[in-house]
């Protein structure tokens, strides 16, 4: 039994169909990428799987699977006097984890005291992203959803982020489900890829399912020129 199996999933928001016929699964310890053009329903799918948005169809979890979430953006007022330590302590209190586990998570991500005590609005983009990953990691999740973790990052930043996700996957056996525009990540790290364009287009190993026809259907002709070497 996989960690989670999604069958015949459809999502309608404000009477507008957003997604239909999505079928895929995530096995324990497997890295899955979700790709698709802007507006294809990737974020909506992740939010439905986390219980944030309503859906039709089936999302079956293999028992009490612990989940983490690294959202693409936070709509919070970053001027509020909250710091990373406040957030980690609050999550630990809500899910019933000890202070020792907070310290362990901090150590794992190498978060300095300065990052922990700085007001969230004053953190750099990279520091904020690491703080979000620490938040997701607290509670030893079996699966973590990363929604475009490298959006607005430069190339070295992207590389570091993918390396960090890969490390979590390899060292902690966490299943990362990564929403990404970057096909390089998909080919390099993902065991399976789900292609979306308002519906499930393909699901399987990247080199098996990302055919020229599928890529054209998702991103247009440009994708073939940019990533043709993988085909």
């Amino acid at each position: 039994m996989p960690l989670v199996r999604v069958s015949n999933l459809s999502i309608t928001l404000d009477q507008r169909p957003i997604l239909r016929d999505v079928n895929f699964e995530v096995d324990e310890g497997e890295a899955v990428a979700i790709i698709g053009p802007n507006g294809s329903g990737k974020t909506v799918l992740v939010k439905a799987m986390l219980g944030i948005l309503p859906y039709e169809g089936e999302i079956v979890w293999n028992g009490a699977v612990t989940r983490g979430y690294v959202p693409q953006k936070i709509d919070a007022d970053r001027s509020v006097p909250l710091n990373v330590r406040n957030l980690l302590e609050s999550k630990a209190a809500v899910i019933g984890r000890s202070k020792a586990e907070i310290a362990e998570t901090i150590g794992r991500l190498g978060l300095t005291d300065e990052i922990l005590t700085t007001q969230i609005g004053h953190l750099s983009g990279g520091q904020f992203q690491r703080a979000l990953i620490a938040f997701a990691l607290l509670g030893n999740p079996q699966i973590i959803f990363f929604d475009e973790p490298t959006a607005s990052m430069d190339e070295p930043g992207e590389e570091q982020m993918y390396h960090l996700i890969h490390r979590l996957h390899e060292d902690l056996r966490i299943s990362p489900v990564v929403v990404s525009h970057d096909l390089t990540f998909v080919y390099r790290y993902a065991d399976r890829v789900l292609c979306l364009n308002r519906a499930g287009i393909c699901f399987g190993p990247p080199r098996g399912v990302l055919t020229a026809a599928v890529l054209t259907q998702l991103f247009g002709q440009r994708a073939i020129y940019e990533h043709g070497e993988h085909l």
Binding site: L50, I74, L82, L87, S90, K91
Partner: peptide, 20 residues
């Protein structure tokens, strides 16, 4: 409810994702 309020203030999506 202070811990739950703090998480909701930070991000209502994240709060929901931890079961609040």
């Amino acid at each position: 409810i202070r811990h739950k309020l703090i998480l909701i203030i930070f991000s209502s999506d994240l709060a929901q994702s931890v079961g609040i």
